[in-house]
């Protein structure tokens, strides 16, 4: 005997497929297949490595068979707890002079000489007072949230334009008694011709208050330059994780590679720290300086 058909369930399945297909179409339309996120993730990973490196340097060294990942026995949310150096405290302690010589912060960058990093550095914690703005703001919206004027470049490389601004407010505690407010405006620029917005962009970070060592870069690659007569530091290259690169310049498992299309330029001006960084856009030093000098 034939079983009666069950059109209702059949239709329900088809309906689900239809909704799924529509969702897939919406998502595919907004997010293309050809994303190349690894450079951006890798850059963020380098910062995690750097923070872990500082963190591990700050406490008695332990050998962990599990490597870097296993060494991070206390996982922390990125941005919730960044370890920075208290160089001022260290200056007075002769035994830590070597460590101070190993890591020096210069403007918005921190430089490492990994052969000299010691294990006696003091640390401090950084706690956000409010979550970063979840999406990109317009320049006008961001300006309302920061107490300093957000200067923008009057000159930009061809095809590059402002994508938006993020604002971050953070309390930096250097001791139980001392806490400083760090306010940062991060302007993100993208190229209309770049195949992947996530892997090719330029960022201008304007910070009031203490810096928290956003990037660790090799001191040997730091170049002194001038931005409108202000002393500035320029670095080009990047860390890579595949074992290639300069074996003399390492940071954890990473090696420095001068050929990577990333560059940083940082300087102080009017009590603010400016850090201009670019990756994947093919900008040379002259172009980055031109952007910096056109800030209005």
């Amino acid at each position: 005997m034939n079983r009666p058909q069950r059109p209702v369930e059949h239709t329900a399945i088809d309906r689900r497929k239809s909704i799924r297909r529509l969702l897939e179409e919406i998502a595919e339309q907004a997010i293309p297949d050809d994303l190349h996120p690894w450079p951006a993730i890798h850059a963020r990973l380098a910062r995690v490595h750097a923070a872990e490196r500082c963190q591990r340097s700050a406490r008695p060294r332990r050998v962990s068979p599990g490597g870097l990942a296993a060494a991070s026995t206390t996982p922390r949310l990125i941005g919730l707890a960044i370890v920075v150096l208290l160089i001022g405290v260290l200056i007075g302690a002769p035994v830590t002079h070597a460590a101070v010589a190993a890591i020096l912060q210069r403007f918005g960058l921190a430089f490492v000489d990994t052969m000299q990093i010691q294990s006696a550095l003091t640390t401090t914690h950084v706690e956000p007072t409010a979550p970063p703005t979840p999406s990109l703001l317009s320049l006008a919206e961001a300006q309302q949230q920061v107490p300093f004027p957000i200067r923008t470049p009057a000159w930009l490389p061809e095809g590059v334009s402002l994508a938006g601004v993020r604002v971050d407010r953070t309390t930096v505690s250097t001791s139980a008694q001392i806490a400083e407010l760090r306010i940062a405006a991060l302007l993100t620029y993208r190229s209309v011709s770049a195949p992947d917005a996530a892997s090719a962009q330029m960022n201008l970070e304007i910070v009031s208050g203490p810096n928290v060592a956003p990037f660790l870069l090799p001191r040997s690659r730091a170049q002194s330059v001038l931005v409108n007569g202000q002393e500035a530091t320029y670095v080009r290259g990047g860390w890579r994780s595949d074992g290639q690169g300069d074996p003399e310049e390492t940071l954890g498992d990473l090696r420095w590679d001068d050929s990577i299309d990333s560059a940083w330029l940082s300087w102080h001006e009017d009590g603010l720290t400016y850090t201009l960084s670019a990756f994947g856009l093919g900008l040379d030093k002259g172009q980055l300086l031109r952007v910096a000098e056109s800030l209005r």
């Binding site: 890798h42 490597g67 994780s241």
Partner: peptide, 10 residues
Amino acid sequence: LQRGDISGLE
């Protein structure tokens, strides 16, 4: 990745 090799993450 569990050995700390980030090529696994890639």
